[in-house]
């Protein structure tokens, strides 16, 4: 793994909205790098502009200033090498398409030949454990299964980086644990880079190899923390490790400080 060439590079990114009451600074200035093959979690207090940040990374929203670079090229429109998983699974899947067609549509748009498309779709849907549900419609599935479909769609797209926006915020606890393990497995099996945004501190520590703690708005990176937990993680044993508890307490304190607005920028 080439350690020093980042896959994704965010430099002094800021975003200011023009609201009726005047300009609102959603993101102050954010700078960070993601290296190839990393699994990075971004965690921050609610309302800190996580979704805005993601939209800027994904080329869906133009930043007010600063830049986003993916694999050496500046992001100005949704990049080919990135796949997105949204929080609102119920609204990001096309309800008029079957599971198969939902996963296949982005590939069709990319011009992947039919036979190859089918193989990719089948492999991805199998990977998330929904091989039996190919011809059902998303709304016939439970919330957790719908989010699996969204993950399958992202995986089939063969991205270099997988960006997930609080994907499990709306599912129940048991489903959530399963989906977290699915993300770890996909990351390991496919060697894809993952950027995972969450407001859940435990989740960020359990999933991530690195955790970026954001301050409250106007947002900057408050801390860049390496998670030195073993690579093999397990919902029971990992979460019971003393180191896990230390890390989550640390992140928790950082978030509390961020909420109180006491934080000092970790990177000047």
């Amino acid at each position: 793994m080439p350690e020093n060439t980042p896959l994704l590079s965010v430099r002094d990114l800021s975003k200011t909205y023009q609201a009726a009451s005047g300009p609102v600074e959603a993101i102050g200035s954010i700078t960070f790098d993601v290296r190839p093959g990393e699994l990075v979690c971004i965690v921050g207090p609610s309302g800190c502009g996580k979704t805005t940040l993601l939209k800027c990374l994904a080329g869906l929203l133009a930043p007010t200033s600063g830049s986003v670079t993916l694999d050496g090229a500046e992001v100005r429109e949704p990049p080919k090498k990135m796949a997105l998983v949204f929080q609102e699974y119920g609204r990001s899947l096309y309800p008029w398409l079957t599971v198969r067609d939902n996963v296949a549509l982005p590939l069709k748009a990319r011009g992947v030949p039919k036979a190859e498309r089918q193989a990719l779709v089948e492999r991805a849907v199998e990977e998330v454990g929904l091989g039996h549900a190919m011809t059902t419609y998303p709304w016939q599935l439970s919330g957790g299964m719908q989010q699996r479909v969204a993950i399958a769609r992202a995986v089939a797209y063969q991205p270099e980086i997988l960006v997930m926006d609080e994907p499990f915020a709306a599912v129940d606890a048991q489903t959530r644990a399963d989906l977290e393990d699915l993300v770890r497995r996909v990351w390991k099996d496919l060697g894809v880079t993952v950027l995972f945004v969450t407001h859940d501190i435990d989740e960020s520590v359990y999933l991530g190899e690195r955790v970026l703690v954001l301050s409250s708005s106007p947002t900057f990176v408050q801390e860049d923390l390496t998670v030195d937990l073993p690579a093999e993680r397990d919902q029971l044993t990992t979460r019971a490790l003393p180191r896990f508890t230390e890390l989550r307490t640390h992140v928790y304190e950082q978030i509390q400080r961020a909420k109180r607005g006491e934080a000092v920028a970790a990177t000047p």
Partner: peptide
Amino acid sequence: DPVLTDTSRSYRVRGALAYRYV
């Protein structure tokens, strides 16, 4: 739904395909 529109944009589904399928 703006989430659907964002989804389509992020997966670069556009032009005739976007009209037909989205």
